[in-house]
Design a protein around this nucleic acid. Structure first.
Lengths: 150, 150
DNA sequence: TGGTGAATGTTATACAGTAACGTGTGTTAC
DNA sequence: GTAACACACGTTACTGTATAACATTCACCA
């Protein structure tokens, strides 16, 4: 995430938590900031390292609890295939998320195609499955890396 | 997987490995059997426990190497959201796989909708992303659990 | 001001995955 | 036949990911 996007995400998070009556504490805010400041998905233990550099006490549960909150609020996403986290580009609308993961540069984009989402819901329904949430992670090459040699 | 499906999967695996000139060793066959015999996705360490119950020596690499082989051959799938493995329903055709994970009973079905797959490739291409493989895991209620109370 | 619940601190442990190296074993070339 | 090789497996050790369980602190409200 770019620096200005990061500031915007933090501001949006403040507003959303305010509106929802949930508490974006100092720790949670700081974890969100760390995630958003990272250009690429960041792991929980990397977040923990940054917190420790801040001089905070900290153990894994510290980070995971903050991440659980941020996930619940839709402010960050977890990429299951990478065991890592990224800031959400559009936190206002809760969404499962479709992620474009570049195998070359490691960058991650959000797709959020309603067409894809609806297609999945329909295809699942056709076999009797009631879809609630979906996790779509797409590996390949981003536009910038698309034509680069292997 | 049902018991008869399990036997069928093992037979199919034999045939495929034979045809491909790859070696379905005793260990690999046994790991496949354990995965297929499990009604639900099974973790690597649970597989290891079964191997040890068999009286085999064993350590994590034993299991992971067998699983790597089975994944390469398309005989099992890995569910990233669960860090667990399931037997493949249609091992003959290599496919990325779309999984229907029931939040109530824990069962997992394969969807394999070409429509969904193509939709994802198209939606990614529309934003300049060249999709290579995709991982789709859908959470919800299976047909049997669909109408059960929370 | 004391009680309640939420958030955080802390310790310990379970689960997931891999690196590195050693050992057997079955080809294939000579 | 046997040396050389590739492959599968054994073994040790370790890193990374995640959570359980319990203690403590803090904010808020009655």
């Amino acid at each position: 995430m770019q620096a200005n996007d990061c500031a915007a995400a933090l501001a949006a998070a403040e507003g959303l938590c305010e509106a929802r009556g949930t508490r974006l504490t100092e720790l949670r805010r700081r974890v969100l900031e760390i995630v958003c400041a990272s250009a690429r998905p960041i792991g929980a233990y990397a977040i923990l390292d940054v917190l420790r550099d801040d001089g905070r006490p900290g153990a894994p549960p510290t980070v995971y609890r903050a991440l659980d909150f941020l996930l619940e609020q839709g402010l960050v996403h977890r990429l299951a295939s990478l065991n890592a986290f990224i800031g959400c580009s559009h936190p206002a609308e809760h969404h499962g998320g479709q992620f474009l993961i570049c195998e070359r540069c490691g960058c991650v984009g959000e797709l959020d195609s309603h067409e894809v989402e609806d297609g999945i819901v329909r295809a699942a329904a056709a076999v009797g499955f009631a879809a609630r949430t979906q996790m779509v992670e797409i590996l390949g090459r981003c536009a910038a890396c698309r034509d680069a040699p292997a």
